[in-house]
Amino acid sequence: MSFLRPEIRAALHRWREALIGAAMVAAGLLLVVTEGGLWRWLGLLLALAGAAILREGVRRSRRLPDGQGPGMVEVDERRITYLSARGGGSISIDALAEVDIVTLDHAAFWALSDREGTALSIPASASGAAQIYDALSPLPGYSPDRALAAARAGRPGRVTIWRHPAAPVPRRLH
């Protein structure tokens, strides 16, 4: 039997990594302030590790809800695969030319295209779509924070998150 309402449990579950990081920072700072010698240095290390976990936890918690949209995303062997009842496809991370976030009336989509002209549109709310944020992190100049901000913008539009340096700039009608 749980004493917490389901929505509070869901929020705690979603923010669990950030909460663990915050607790580590607090415990580390307590050691730094109250203890001396080796314990003070261990407290500092604990606080720094907690800060890193807190930062990543906040970043992950702010992502769009995963698994409520159509389809399923799999990231394996540096390939992003989207499967859906209405189709899908697969694209290699190494062959990417451009990564965009497209927002339409409270819905966000990843728009991926490679250098061969293959395009793949993935709902940001598809099951497993949160993996895309981390899968793209090796791309030089890619910012998961910029992708998150674009996905949460709430106004219709298309934002280019990353473009391969050698890829030509596409001409789009707005």
Rank of each mutant, 00 (worst) to 15 (best):
L4I: 07
A85I: 03
D105P: 02
R78F: 05
G57W: 00
D105V: 12
R55E: 07
T34F: 08
A108H: 08
D114R: 04
L46Q: 07
Q68W: 06
G87N: 04
S61C: 06
L19A: 15
R79G: 01
V33S: 09
P168L: 15
D100G: 02
G43Q: 04
A149T: 13
I132G: 04
S92I: 00
R63P: 00
A119S: 13
L64H: 00
Q131S: 10
G141K: 03
A130I: 05
S121F: 07
D100L: 03
D105E: 15
I132N: 05
A166Q: 15
V73C: 08
E116H: 13
R5V: 03
I53C: 07
D100E: 11
R172I: 15
I161L: 13
G37R: 07
S143Y: 06
L83D: 01
R60A: 13
L173E: 12
L83R: 11
E77W: 03
P144D: 12
A124V: 04
G43S: 04
H106M: 14
D66W: 05
A149F: 01
G69Y: 04
R59Q: 12
A11W: 08
E17F: 02
L42C: 09
W15N: 13
Y133L: 10
E35C: 12
L19Q: 11
T118C: 09
D145H: 09
G50C: 07
L83V: 02
G157I: 02
R62D: 03
E74A: 10
P168G: 13
G36P: 04
A51L: 10
P140I: 01
G71F: 00
D134V: 08
L64N: 02
L42S: 08
R63G: 02
G28V: 06
L136H: 09
I93P: 00
G36Q: 14
S2M: 07
V58P: 03
A51N: 01
R40L: 03
F3N: 09
A52W: 08
T81A: 14
D134A: 12
L30A: 15
P140Q: 13
P156T: 15
